Amino acid sequence: MSLYGAVEAGGTKFLCAVGTGPDHLEAILRIPTTTPDETLARVIAFFRPFAGALKAIGIGSFGPLDLDPTSPTFGTIPTTPKPGWSGTNLLWPFQEAFGIPIGLTTDVQAAALGEGRWGAAQGLHTFVYLTVGTGIGGGAIVHGRMLHGVWHPEMGHIRIPHDWERDPFPGVCPFHGDCLEGLASGPAMAARWGQPPEALPPDHPAWELEAEYLALGLVNILCILTPQRILLGGGVAQHPGLLPRVRERMRALLNRYLPAPALEGDLETYVMPPALGERAGLLGALALAMEMAS
């Protein structure tokens, strides 16, 4: 039987699996992220027993990533705060070891692929997956294809209005200060309020401000890409009561400007949580492998 390999490459762990879909994963292994040589060697060793049946491997990785096939550094992590990983090529060790198609994309783009194939975006051709947690990242599927231009999307670094009187917090992004990630990520909330988001009660003013910032970011993304649906994932986004606040604020900001039926009402079917949960990235890498083999 044909099998596909999946790798979700994170800053603290790599998740590896082989299978054909959510209901058929023959093996799953968690590998701590150490040095590139050690980590990638362990990942390749995981796949070796399946080499004869593997048709392709998909990798969804932390970034940034060089995904331009014409670039001399295609497949590498150009720069990252993860010690030792800057300049690491994630493609060639797998190509050299297995000689099969290897797909590479960002972890959040992979999550979008997974949701499109098996999750909350099934049947849609254009949608966005935004994750809000330690950072903010976004993946876009446009007419069934991952959106990549001169670089992959960096939705967490869009600039949004910042009311300095309401929120004098300068932001935590080391590059932009008060971009969306700088104002609304988990570390931004922790730095602003002196405690992590999960410790803040539902009636804390932090959540009204968080909903405001996320709504501003999502309205900008909506107006540019006009997706059929937006999926909002990540640990911060799962806080009880946040999503209804985001929807309500988005409706007010849009002010009925876009007459699409999907944007009428309370937006419950337009801005939704992902269906695959924590498995979205790994299953998305599996979906990427299946695309590479087709």
Rank of each mutant, 00 (worst) to 15 (best):
L258I: 15
Q238A: 14
A260E: 14
L214C: 05
D163Q: 05
G133M: 08
I160S: 13
Q195T: 14
I136H: 04
W207P: 09
H162V: 07
Y257P: 00
P170G: 04
G171H: 00
G217Q: 08
G171D: 01
P153T: 07
P201I: 15
H152M: 11
P187C: 12
A199C: 07
L258V: 14
P201G: 13
W207M: 06
L216F: 07
P259T: 11
I224N: 08
G182A: 01
I160E: 11
W193P: 05
M250D: 02
P197M: 07
L200T: 12
A184M: 07
D167Q: 09
E212H: 08
C173I: 00
E210D: 05
W151V: 03
L222W: 10
I221D: 06
G156N: 06
C173L: 02
P261R: 11
G149V: 06
W207C: 07
E208C: 02
E181L: 10
S185N: 10
P261V: 05
W193A: 04
E165S: 07
P168V: 13
G138D: 11
V246P: 04
G133I: 04
A140M: 14
V142G: 00
A215G: 09
V142I: 15
I224F: 14
M146S: 09
W151P: 00
I160G: 11
L258A: 12
G139T: 08
Y257V: 14
W151N: 12
A199R: 12
L253C: 09
L242V: 12
L209S: 04
P187A: 13
G171L: 00
V150T: 10
L258Q: 06
G144D: 05
E212F: 01
L225K: 01
L254Q: 10
P174I: 09
N255A: 15
A215C: 13
P174F: 09
H176Y: 14
L222T: 04
A191W: 01
R159W: 08
A211N: 05
R247F: 10
A184D: 03
A260N: 06
P205H: 08
I136G: 03
R245M: 15
P201Q: 13
V142A: 13
A191Y: 01
G137P: 03
P161W: 08
G234A: 06
I141S: 01
P202I: 10
G177Q: 02
L200S: 10
R247N: 09
G144W: 09
R256M: 07
D203R: 12
R166T: 13
W193C: 04
G194H: 07
R192C: 13
E208Y: 01
